[in-house]
Nucleic acid binder design. Structure first.
Lengths: 134, 134
DNA sequence: TTATATTTGTCCGTATGTATG
DNA sequence: CCATACATACGGACAAATATA
């Protein structure tokens, strides 16, 4: 909780280290973070530093932010099991804006791309688990 | 190239639409973008808007930025083919900072997680292509 | 080697708009 | 209607890394 201004690490990255509390489950999915102004007062930082830290957590898919409401720990959706078949090739990447809109994806969530021959299927990575048939 | 200040879409997102030039290949991997100050003059925007637009492209894995040098179209590494086996389960997500450092990953690149039983393997998504054995 | 200019990184402060409750 | 909260955009300042002369 103590930020060190003399450290080489920028303050907003030190603040983003509070992700420990999310990863560990101390802050459960759906729980609300303090507002940006509150965080600014608590840590003695101005808006830009606070927003940069939250941006880091958002790009890591750990939190979601809604305008006029606030930032909360992201709730993961149910995963649908998708069977892979012989010859399938799988990659993943960040979606471009069109794909994020099309699939209504949260920031920080990748897409999984499955190719078979010339056929290509795209899935939001947080809504599927690919499984190799036994 | 024409930004519309009266549009509902924020200026930095309109500017990020220039990603077309990267996706289409008009700007090939490795090519350098104009500096932030140059872009600001060209589009009549101040630094924050320019930086926000570049942030979007960076989080989409389309460009990389080096301090003191500038921003260039990201060069994709070679992909190693990794064979999947019966019972493997595959997901993908954004890496947290520790993982990005550990694997020396560019911003905007996800990790692919392969589980088999209690065993878990993690790969940088831009350096592998998973393949289901025929 | 040294020095300088360029370029991005990291903060601050402020103002206005818009969505939510 | 009002208060709260985030989104967008402007401005400035200094530091650090890189490239160039």
């Amino acid at each position: 909780v103590a930020l060190d201004p003399r450290s080489d690490r920028p303050l907003y990255r030190q603040l983003a280290d509070e992700r420990r509390r999310i990863v560990s489950g101390e802050l459960p999915p759906g729980s609300k973070l303090p507002s940006e102004t509150t965080l600014g007062q608590e840590y003695g930082l101005a808006m830009p530093a606070i927003r940069s830290a939250i941006n880091v957590l958002r790009s890591e898919g750990l939190v979601t932010t809604e305008r006029g409401f606030g930032t909360k720990v992201r709730v993961q959706p149910e995963r649908e099991v998708v069977e892979l078949h012989a010859g399938d090739r799988v990659t993943a990447r960040a979606p471009i804006e069109d794909e994020r809109r099309q699939f209504d994806m949260d920031p920080g969530v990748p897409v999984i791309v499955v190719n078979q021959g010339s056929d290509e299927r795209i899935y939001p990575a947080d809504r599927v688990e690919l499984s190799v048939h036994t």
